[in-house]
Amino acid sequence: MSILILSDHENGQLSPVTLNTITAATEIGGDIDLLVAGDASGNVVKAAASIANVSKVLAANDKIFENGLAENLTPLLLSLSAKYSHIMASATTTGKNVMPRVAAELDVMQISDIIKVIDANTFQRPIYAGNALSTVSSSEAVKIITVRGTAFEAATAKGGNAAVQSLQSTGDAGLSTYLKSELSSSERPELTSAPIVISGGRGMQDGANFNMLEKIADKLGAAVGASRAAVDAGFVSNEYQVGQTGKVVAPDLYMAVGISGAIQHLAGMKDSKIIVAINKDGEAPIFQVADYGLVADLFDAVPQLEKELG
């Protein structure tokens, strides 16, 4: 068996989630090659080559790949597909965008968002926002898979010494053009890999009130998240959203503040190790999944919490 992984990278850095996907690949077994497409700096290729368990790094250094346009990445992945039994990507917005195109071209049914490897052909994945878990097996010649990063430990980033092979560019498909990004620049840890996440919901009442959560986040080294209700209300922007259609997180500690606990929100955080809920409505469904629930007005409790944390 041999496995190709499309690595995620941003601003010249390999995304940590790629390490989780490598662990999923290790559980399948066989050689693991890492594809790095559009790495102008060379840093990502270097980082990829030093990951333990990686056999080979394939570098396609053409700027048409830099922004992850699916129309351009698909021919590149297809040019490599014949050599692999599994082609995998993290279930990030990049992986979700590209992999179904590859699967369709190969006439293969993709297996999305796996959370467990049973064997090389059999995988578990959540359906219905995680309210049911489906185990599926595939007899396709090549398995196209996206991986939920939070369901697998990160592979060791050091200790490897993989060979780097340069690839010919497959060219610009001429269908799409990257214009610009509006990315939030934050000093805080990234939401999906942060050890602690503190999220606010509709109960926060206003975007400005999120600074109460930010103060606590800064004390704990936490990331700040939000429920869909808070994003829809315009309190914070979309990249904060935790839930079925937002980000899935599984930190050591998740604090839900002013969040009622809709099914679609629980889908994004209920695998957290410890869940804390602060809500003035003692009947809110979030308390059914919380390890520690505090029924209180968040506008009293949150400033107190900040003080207690010293």
Binding site: I118, I127, Y292
Partner: peptide
């Protein structure tokens, strides 16, 4: 014709019920 075989569909493990704390001090 479906390409994937559904081996089984099951309920996820439910979380054990937690506790309510009285105040912020107890929570911390």
């Amino acid at each position: 014709e479906p390409r994937l075989t559904i081996v089984k569909v099951e309920e996820p493990e439910s979380r054990a019920a937690g506790i309510k704390v009285a105040d912020v001090q107890e929570l911390v």
